[in-house]
């Protein structure tokens, strides 16, 4: 393998890492702070992508507006779902699995009925390609990296520096104590869940241009996003970021050396070993206070 190809693979892998980080964040928030495995996560990516298609491609709104609409709509959907269904199942793993799985099927079949089976294509909002010597990167991938960093930074700020963020963390650590302090933990739950759903919708809208928008879009993200969360551990945002980079860079470089099927298998095996040795994930928070 030539040096130029290696650097190309590393650059592609790095941009892929940020995409994976973006698509996993919502899942991490809901699992990490609420102990709910949200099986509807990847279907929210699909829903976000459809919102992007209709807002950006059909209604010709600015791309940023499409992202905002996707976030807002998914957030609201999150509120409704949490109040109607999820809030009844906290602390019960199998019931939440069943409920979120049902929601995912509802979303998927709903999209099939509502939007039909045809492929929908979202144009790249920016179409230039940057080349540095023999290494290239599409400008939209750079935009995606930017969106991903912004979302990560905002989430960090939201969880660690705002009042509601402090309430979210205290609810996770000790619910009854938090309630004793007069905080409405039900409202906190609703906000946390809806924020996670909103992030999923936003991520779906952001990846719409690099994928093809169909009702089956969610499936292709299922393995990687869940693998990422399991490996990174749910209690730190940094863990998610680090495991995104490790997973995507290894997939990219190993597929460069052999092929992508082998790469997937090797990475999956490595993840299994890591989870066996460190069941809480690679980066369990030492920051828990």
């Amino acid at each position: 393998m030539s040096l130029s190809m290696l650097s190309q693979l590393l650059v592609s892998g790095l941009s892929g890492s940020f995409v994976l980080l973006l698509t996993s964040l919502g899942l991490v928030i809901i699992l990490g702070y609420m102990k709910v495995v949200n099986l509807a996560h990847t279907e929210m990516l699909m829903a976000g992508a459809y919102i992007c298609y209709y807002a950006f491609q059909v209604a010709k709104l600015p791309f940023v507006a499409a992202l905002a609409i996707a976030f807002a709509a998914s957030f609201l959907f999150g509120v409704v779902i949490e109040r109607l269904i999820i809030c009844h199942f906290y602390g019960k793993m199998s019931e939440t699995l069943l409920a979120t799985y049902a929601i995912s099927m509802l979303l998927k079949q709903g999209a099939l009925l509502l939007f039909g089976k045809n492929y929908k294509k979202v144009d790249y909002p920016t179409s230039e390609v940057f080349t540095f010597g023999s290494v290239y990167i599409e400008s939209y991938k750079v935009v995606l990296v930017g969106i991903s960093i912004l979302v990560l930074a905002f989430t960090f700020f939201f969880i660690h520096k705002t009042k509601i963020g402090r309430k979210i963390r205290s609810t996770t650590q000790n619910r009854s104590m938090t309630e004793c302090l007069g905080i409405d933990t039900k409202r906190v739950d609703t906000i946390t869940f809806s924020y996670g759903m909103g992030l999923a919708g936003l991520a779906g809208a952001a990846i719409a241009p690099i994928s093809t928008v169909t009702y089956s879009l969610g499936e292709s993200w299922l393995t990687n996003t869940f693998m990422n969360v399991v490996m990174g551990g749910v209690s730190s945002l940094f863990g998610t970021f680090a495991s995104s980079v490790i997973i995507q860079e290894s997939i990219s470089v190993i597929s460069g050396l052999s092929n992508s099927v082998t790469a997937q298998i090797i990475v999956l095996l490595v993840v299994i070993v890591i989870v066996r040795l460190k069941p809480e994930g690679l980066f369990t928070s030492k920051e828990r206070r």
């Binding site: 693979l9 592609s12 292709s220 790469a263």
Partner: peptide, 11 residues
Amino acid sequence: DTTEFSDVIAK
């Protein structure tokens, strides 16, 4: 289920 092809394109 592959939808990311930057490695293939690089090759």
